[in-house]
Nucleic acid binder design. Sequence first.
DNA 1: GGACACCTCAAATGATTCAG
DNA 2: CTGAATCATTTGAGGTGTCC
Length: 227
Amino acid sequence: MNNETQIVDLALENLQKTAGITGIWKPGALKELDGQLELKLNNKTIKLNTEIKRELRGHNLPQIEAMAARFNPLIVVAQYIFPKIKEELREKGIAYLETNGNIFLKQKENFIWLDLQKAALPYVEKTNRAYTKTGAKILFYFLLNEDLLNLPYREIAKLTGVALGNINYVITGLREQNFLLKLDQYRYKFQNKRELLNKWVTAYEKRLKPTLEIGTFRFVKGDAFID
DNA sequence: GGACACCTCAAATGATTCAG
DNA sequence: CTGAATCATTTGAGGTGTCC
């Protein structure tokens, strides 16, 4: 599909950058396969069957192994492969390629292994996390009381009943859309609050409300509704 | 300059959506 | 309707800044 093309293209682009290896990918005719990849390496061309995935996790392994046995040589192209899984693939001698250009390929005459820690870009596009289920929840508290913006993340997390890591995601999301005005080095204040409120309402309807049980919510301060 | 508080980010886990 | 694929959240180690 188009999505698959995107993953392979990005992977090849980065492979070129990091390892100087070029490759061409062609969609395959076979239904079980996601096409074929031709890698150019030292004037040699290596042809590989490909399987394309977004992320590769433990439960995919048996399937991949079966494919590797059937369509040898096989390379797995994925947006992101869990480190442990990569390890297993290497042990089993199955080739892989990630979108950040990390590659492993072991054959009789060819051996490539590239693992760049930092350059990892797990996801192609990041969604703005201010409007997810949890995001909306946090934002709800922020809208009720702007001062919460300036509490330590840990306290915000505790107060909103959400994991620490989310706070930063939400703040970043809001900042990207210019809803936060920097007062000084440490403090923020909302700006363009009306529009933000609209966004929240949409997010609430779409993402949060469907998962809530009716009757489990109340306002933090009793009179907040009238305010 | 050490202790502490706090933030960040990769990895792991969990939840939801999608395809067959 | 079910398992697979994808998207979202949590966890926690490591890094950075701050205060005494």
